[in-house]
Amino acid sequence: MTEIPGTIAGATIEGPAGPARGYWSNVLRRLRRDRVAVVCIVILALILLAAIFAPLVAPGDPFRTSMLRRLRPIGTPGFPLGTDELGRDMLTRLVFGGRLSLFTGIVPVINAFVIGTFLGVFAGFSGGRTNMAIMRTIDVFYAFPSVLLAIAISGALGAGIFNSIVSLTIVFVPPIARVAESVTTQVRNLDFVDAARASGAGAFTIIRVHILGNVLGPVFVYATGLVSVSMILASGLSFLGLGTKPPEAEWGLMLNTLRTAIYAQPVVAALPGAMIFTVSICFNLFSDGLRSAMDVKL
């Protein structure tokens, strides 16, 4: 190593103040200051943990029915959130229901994130005819409202958790691919990509080092916003009998089966809906917070 001059032309060049921080640590720091986002993360974490450790957390058995204590109100001793139309403990079923609901809400988005980002980055980076071919095909799916598309595919594949995940994945690939494609196209035209090409780097290296790092962030934000939609669609499919089948506990399905009790026990009947609402709004607000935290002013 040669001697390191800190000066050039007799002048000291001052470094930036403060510790060196990577982009993501900056984002994290800003996110921590966003109170709404933090509250949302805490709520989501609690619900997720409760779902994962449902057998430990839940007070009872989600499948034990009793014709004697059907539709008890909230606050009934032993059943803090009442019972459903078959006398099952609501609290237990809500905790267990989170497992399937979160699973069917999040997994399709993760799948679509992987597939959509791949398609979008590939299309955006290739440009030209390849881009046209991929994006126009994707636009075909765009022509249908997402709810109809999900119902149609689920209907064609048949009811079941696996099929509902497949159909939701298909629903979410186009919008994610589109966002990934537009961000990739923007990034691809920046000078640093040209500089990398001028260094002799191949397409794969450029995508890995220069494109993905700049594309994944915005696409991730977009995808977290989709989780709420996915939750609602998954619940909707169960509600229509296309997703989970009874007697499984799942919020959308519970909403459906409790529908008949809406006059007898309106509060209890609304509980699964409240869960869907809470989780999806938390995902949405978290996504907003993440978006503004990542929007670094330069």
Binding site: A9, G10, A11, T12, I13, E14
Partner: peptide, 8 residues
């Protein structure tokens, strides 16, 4: 050589 003002 240009007599540049140092610094920023």
């Amino acid at each position: 050589r240009l007599d540049a003002i140092p610094g920023a």
